[in-house]
């Protein structure tokens, strides 16, 4: 059960990172010269979302 819960949590993280990637690619398509700064922002946003998914992973390990 814990693993199913973690799987559902990862769905949220996947959607979050996908949205960040959507924002990043459409912004780069609009203005390619700010690509460096946009890539940094994308990685930053992904790090925050990833943290939540990994908290879920650790909680799964705890609950075993």
């Amino acid at each position: 059960m814990g693993v199913i819960g973690y799987g559902l949590g990862v769905v949220g993280a996947g959607i979050g990172i996908g949205l960040a990637a959507l924002g990043a690619t459409s912004s780069i398509a609009r203005q390619p010269e700010v690509q460096g700064r946009l890539f940094t922002v994308f990685i930053l946003a992904s790090a925050f979302v990833e943290a939540l998914a990994l908290i879920g992973f650790v909680v799964t390990l705890i609950a075993q």
Binding site: A47, A51, L54, I55, F57, L61
Partner: peptide, 13 residues
């Protein structure tokens, strides 16, 4: 604390 710890711990696991 938890963000840093989880990223490193879970990544290596």
């Amino acid at each position: 604390a938890v963000r840093l710890f989880c990223n490193l711990f879970a990544g290596h696991v």
